[in-house]
Amino acid sequence: MNAPVRFVAKNMRLDLRLIAGMVAPGARVLDIGSGDGSLIDHLYRTHGCDARGIEIDMAEVTRSVAHGLPVMHGDADSDLAQYPDDAFDYVILSRTLQAVERPREVLRQMLRIGRHAIVSFPNFGHWQVRWQLLWSGRMPMTSVWARPWHETPNIHPCTIRDFVQLCADEGYVIERWLAVDEAGQRAPWRRFMGMANLFGEQALFQLRKR
């Protein structure tokens, strides 16, 4: 996992806005994979949060710190274990879960060090993905899943249903969730997970421990 993970950079502002809307003002926040630091900057400036970041791409880390943002070089798989229990109110993993080595362990760590976890990921259950695989018999290439199979850092893709199942297995409470379509609009299938899994290009979940 050397390349920074960017799925739909054009939707960054939307993703940021949706996640920021879930975070209570003044909260302690850890953003895993903080990129250029725009989310933690936003949370500090508009929500008064104590927001910090971890980022694996050193150029992004340098840029963030040079902008005065508290970011450390590290990665989700090995650095979360260093934090004490309940160090944060929210731990955010935006569009990175599918690229970590051990997604289940990363989620466990997130909910150990934070009271809430906010996780967004691209949905592999989207109809275009299903259709391409069925029709061409080859790995899907869509605007969201834009890299060929041999170059993608996304080693653990999942569908919305897969993720919900993992939460059930691990005993996590889904406090909120929503699916977002390609244009970044909230998908209208809030009540019907099967529809969201078919038409939502990305999903956003807020979890806590039971």
């Binding site: 910090r52 050193m58 450390m72 070089h73 260093q82 004490p84």
Partner: peptide, 14 residues
């Protein structure tokens, strides 16, 4: 840096 994380300190590391 990791020790500071264990202490829940505010740490940047480059």
């Amino acid at each position: 840096a990791r020790a500071l994380n264990r202490a829940a300190a505010n740490v940047s590391f480059v």
